[in-house]
């Protein structure tokens, strides 16, 4: 028996809107630790890793580990039917072939339940080792989204370079080139507007903007985004989910042939 009650149901709506276009089908894993998902996009270039810790739920019951295969587009359709202030409860029976999403309005005057069929998904789980990154950039998530969107009007790829001067986002296309440099800025009044650059070694990596733009659909989840770079690793773009966990995107770089 699985029963997860999330008072801030809008978080789950935002998570689904962030990942449904990147991944079609995925297994949600439930354990005593929390509700998690790891899935790659169909071309095995990008990976989504979600964790919602059990402590973040108002009620969390998971009698035994359960893996539920879901079509993310269909799940997103159902969650779209929840109001932004609704409490969302996810329910499933052990060994059952469906999952129920229950939506309660804040004053309990409307209760809806949506049942969705589960599916068998043969997914490849990747072991992602803990790594030390050469550079970690923390910046406003809206600024990151703006930069990725702007650059994708000029070119298809972005070169992200971190030096002691700051972080530079560059692209080139048929019409010309673009460079955007952000310097560290910790002097702002609001911490969510800060840009913080931790650099061990200068690093420069090239990524497909199509994927970066897809990751920025998670912008409503967090005011800040963390971009972790190492020359020998995929980039990690992380959105923290308030008090509960994270949504991380991994993207393999492009390299010169």
């Amino acid at each position: 028996m699985l029963e997860l009650r999330l008072v801030q149901g809008s978080l789950l709506k935002k998570v689904m809107e962030s990942i449904k276009d990147l991944v079609n089908d995925a297994n949600f894993d439930c354990s005593a630790t929390g509700f998690s998902l790891q899935a790659m996009d169909s071309s095995h270039v990008a990976l989504v890793s979600l964790l919602l810790r059990s402590e973040g739920f108002e009620h969390y019951r998971c009698d035994r580990n359960l893996s539920m295969g879901m079509n993310l587009g269909n799940m997103a359709k159902m969650l779209k039917c929840a109001g932004n202030d609704d409490i969302v409860t996810v329910k499933a029976d052990d060994g059952g072939d469906c999952v129920t999403f229950m939506f309660e309005s804040p004053n309990q005057d409307k209760i809806a339940d949506f049942e969705m069929k589960l599916m068998d998904i043969d997914s490849e789980h990747l072991g992602i080792p803990e790594a030390e990154y050469e550079a970690i950039v923390r910046m406003p998530s809206a600024e990151f989204a703006r930069i990725c969107k702007d650059l994708s009007t000029i070119g298809d790829t972005v070169v992200i370079s971190v030096t002691k001067e700051g972080v530079k986002f560059s692209t080139r296309g048929d019409i010309g080139t673009a460079n955007i440099v952000l310097r560290q800025n910790t002097s702002v009044d609001k911490p969510e507007e800060a840009t913080i650059i931790e650099m061990e070694t200068p690093v420069s990596l090239t990524f497909a903007l199509r994927y970066m733009n897809s990751f920025t659909k998670a912008t409503p989840l967090a005011s800040q985004v963390t971009v972790s770079l190492s020359s020998e690793l995929p980039v990690v773009v992380e959105y923290k989910i308030a008090e509960m966990g994270y949504l991380r995107f991994y993207l393999a770089p492009k390299i010169e042939e």
Binding site: H44, H125, G127, P129, A252, P253
Partner: peptide, 14 residues
């Protein structure tokens, strides 16, 4: 030209 690396070039399947 750039070659798009795959995640399996970096991470192992469990």
């Amino acid at each position: 030209a750039c070659l798009q690396k795959k995640l399996l070039d970096y991470f192992n399947a469990d």
